[in-house]
C-alpha cells in the first residue's frame, strides 16, 4: 500500500471536512480497492468533529443541570429530592446504548407536523437527528452521573468551611456561591474529569445505535468501522481511531488539570489534589 504525496494531498482535500456533509468534500466515500491509508487517516480525523461537538456541548449543559439535580438530591424537601433521585437512578441504572435506542424511538413518535402551542407550531423533526437527539441523550446521561458526583462532594464539604461562612455573616445564595459551590467543585473535580473522559468515549456509540447517518456524515468510529468493513482489515482503521482517542483523552486531562490547579490554588501545596493520567473507573 504505497501512497505518494499527491494522492495523499487529494485525500486530505476531499475528506478532511467530509463529516460535515458532502458539500464540504467528496460526494462519495472511497470504496473497496480505492481506499488507501491517507483516506483512512483523514476521514477518521474528520469524524472527530462529531465526538468533540457532542462531548463538549453535553458536558457544558450537563454541568448546570447536574448542579441543580445535586442540590435537589441534597434537599430536605421530599418533592425535590425524589424526582432527582429517580432521574439519577434511571440514567445511571441503564445502559447508555439502550437509552439511545429508546429515546430515538420515542422521538420519532412526536407528531410529524410539529406540536402546536397556541398560534405557534413547534417543529419536532430535527429532534430525531443525531446532532440534536443524541446530544439530548448524552446531556441527560452525563447530568445524572455528574449529579451523583456533585452530590457526593456536597456531602463532604467540610463543616468548618460552612461554619466559617456563617461566622462571616454569609447566607443563602452568597454563601452557596462563595463557599459551598467552589468547595464542592474542588472536591468533585478529579471524579468529574473521569466522567468527562467517559462521556467523550461514549460519543462513539451514537452512530452505532438508532441514529441514522445523513449523507454518510458520522463520527470517527463510524468511519473506522466503515473502512474495516470495506477493506476487511481491522489492523489499520481501528488503531488509527484508537490513537486519536488517546490523544484527545490526554488533551482533555490537560485542560481539566489547568482548571484543577486553579480550583486548588488557595490551598497549601501539600494539600492540593493532583490530577494524573491514572486510570480510575468510577462511573
Amino acid at each position: 500500500m504505497s501512497v505518494d504525496f499527491a494522492t495523499c494531498a487529494e485525500s486530505f482535500h476531499g475528506l478532511i471536512l467530509r463529516s460535515l456533509g458532502r458539500d464540504f468534500g467528496d460526494r462519495l466515500l472511497p470504496r473497496g480497492l480505492e481506499i488507501n491509508v491517507c483516506d483512512q487517516v483523514f476521514l477518521i480525523a474528520s469524524g472527530l468533529v462529531w465526538n468533540v461537538y457532542l462531548a463538549a456541548l453535553a458536558l457544558f449543559f450537563g454541568f448546570f443541570l447536574a448542579t441543580a439535580i445535586a442540590l435537589a438530591k441534597s434537599s430536605e424537601t421530599r418533592w425535590l429530592r425524589s424526582p432527582a433521585e429517580a432521574f439519577v437512578f434511571i440514567f445511571r441504572g441503564s445502559p447508555l446504548f439502550v437509552q439511545f435506542f429508546f429515546v430515538y424511538e420515542a422521538l420519532v413518535l412526536l407528531p410529524r407536523a410539529g406540536i402546536e402551542i397556541g398560534p405557534i407550531t413547534l417543529d419536532t423533526q430535527w429532534m430525531t437527528r443525531a446532532w440534536a437527539g443524541a446530544l439530548f441523550v448524552l446531556f441527560l446521561n452525563t447530568s445524572a452521573y455528574t449529579a451523583e458526583i456533585f452530590h457526593g462532594a456536597l456531602k463532604s464539604v467540610p463543616k468548618g468551611d460552612l461554619e466559617a461562612a456563617d461566622a462571616y455573616g454569609l447566607t443563602g445564595w452568597t454563601k452557596f456561591r462563595r463557599v459551598t459551590w467552589p468547595t464542592m467543585l474542588r472536591l468533585a473535580w478529579p471524579s468529574y474529569t473521569n466522567e468527562a473522559i467517559f462521556l467523550l468515549h461514549a460519543t462513539t456509540l451514537v452512530f452505532f445505535s438508532a441514529f441514522p447517518a445523513w449523507q454518510q456524515m458520522g463520527d470517527a468510529l463510524y468511519y473506522a468501522n466503515y473502512f474495516a468493513a470495506q477493506t476487511f482489515n481491522p489492523f489499520i482503521a481501528y488503531p488509527i481511531v484508537g490513537l486519536y482517542f488517546v490523544l484527545m483523552t490526554l488533551v482533555l486531562i490537560g485542560g481539566f488539570g489547568v482548571v484543577n490547579r486553579r480550583l486548588n490554588r488557595h490551598l497549601p501545596r501539600a494539600a492540593r489534589a493532583r490530577l494524573r493520567f491514572r486510570p480510575h473507573y468510577i462511573r
Binding site: 468515549h201 462513539t204 481501528y238 486510570p279
Partner: peptide, 19 residues
C-alpha cells in the same frame, strides 16, 4: 492498564474479536 483508559471500550469490542 492505561491503554484501555485512553481508548473507548467499544473500539476494543469491535477490534479484538475481528483481529
Amino acid at each position: 492498564v492505561s491503554m484501555v483508559r485512553g481508548v473507548p471500550d467499544i473500539i476494543f469490542f469491535l477490534f479484538v474479536p475481528f483481529a
